[in-house]
Write a protein that binds this DNA or RNA. Structure first.
Lengths: 110, 110
DNA sequence: TACATATATCGTAATATTGCAATATAACAG
DNA sequence: CTGTTATATTGCAATATTACGATATATGTA
């Protein structure tokens, strides 16, 4: 059906999945890595750097912006994007919470 | 077109995106959380717990198994799944590397 | 052997995602 | 106002994902 049954899961699970989903595309990883290095970037920087069409880059930026991971400020004709510090820390914390919840043990029968 | 242009990105970016993608569904998050708590589980445990059909659970397990995040061992009629310790640490490290790469700075023009 | 239990796989329908050309919008320069 | 530059939005085609019923497979039990 292509539709996720979100009602079966709690908010924490749906939100963490939503964050992971947006990181689940190499172009969006590449955009974030660009931002980590350059601190700021515009759409056209990414078009040059990644080799995807302008419309495609714009779409990926929109998705990350909607989740609050990045923010854009209009600067004349262009838009400067950068990472949202608070959201970035939240993301980091959410994933750490998941990963740190593991205590190794034997694979016993259930 | 629905097809990701993986050739535009490097292995690190594609692999990290693949890991994030598999975490990008609440059912798979829920399965991992179940495993973190119970240490081990079978398909039918998850069917009871999550409320998804057996075939659907099996499919989600398969995806995580293919990436090596979980492993399954046949135990009589059922299969015991558990988290792959090495892969889990690798995942944690990969995401930490991304998140720790951020140094806050101003959103300057580009 | 016949049956029950547990899981995997197949086939299919509904929906989502990816990518881009074309076009719209917005800000600035002359 | 006109043209230029940068970005957003729309519309569409190709492909991917999600979910599940039906069925296949595999192990254990009577």
């Amino acid at each position: 059906m292509g539709v996720t049954k979100t009602t079966l899961f709690n908010d924490t699970q749906n939100e963490l999945a939503a964050f992971a989903k947006v990181l689940g595309h190499p172009a969006r990883i590449a955009i974030l890595q660009y931002l980590l290095k350059a601190n700021t970037c515009c759409n056209y920087n990414l078009v040059d750097d990644l080799g995807l069409a302008q419309a495609t880059i714009s779409q990926h930026l929109k998705e990350m912006k909607q989740l609050g991971i990045i923010q854009g400020t209009v600067e004349g004709v262009s838009v400067n994007y950068c990472i949202n510090p608070e959201k970035w820390l939240e993301l980091k914390a959410r994933f750490s919470e998941l990963f740190d919840g593991y205590r190794p043990g034997d694979c016993l029968s259930c």
